[in-house]
């Protein structure tokens, strides 16, 4: 997978592949965070690797955000995210999440 994306900046190697089950870290650090609060702690499935991008939390502090973090699209079942979700079991929400916010589920 990693060979698919080449960046002209140093990047962390991807740890996950499509289909892997991952949990979003349930933590609440201060600062500019691109992981929505509602998805923290949820378990989903890697849909695809999008590439590696400078870490926005670092960029917001005027640092270079390197090494770049792999960015994934992760698919979650709506019924898992919202226990009272009104709609079929099959409905999903897909979100971009950086690797340092993910752990193996």
């Amino acid at each position: 997978m990693s060979a698919q994306f080449t960046t002209d900046y140093p990047a962390v190697a991807p740890r996950y592949k499509p289909g892997d089950r991952v949990r979003v870290r349930k933590t609440a650090p201060l600062g500019h965070i691109r992981t929505p609060y509602y998805i923290r702690g949820q378990v989903g499935e890697i849909e695809r690797l999008c590439g590696a991008f400078p870490n926005p939390e670092e960029l917001a502090q005027m640092r270079d955000g390197l090494p770049a973090q792999p960015l994934y699209r992760v698919r979650f079942k709506q019924k898992d995210v919202w226990p009272d979700y009104r709609g079929p079991e099959t409905d999903v929400v897909e979100i971009e999440i950086y690797q340092h916010w993910l752990e193996k589920a």
Binding site: P36, C50, L71, Q78, D91, E94, E96
Partner: peptide, 14 residues
């Protein structure tokens, strides 16, 4: 109901 809804939350670089 037979159609799956996929909501895409555009949170980062895509």
């Amino acid at each position: 109901e037979a159609v799956q809804i996929r909501v895409h939350d555009s949170t980062a670089d895509m």
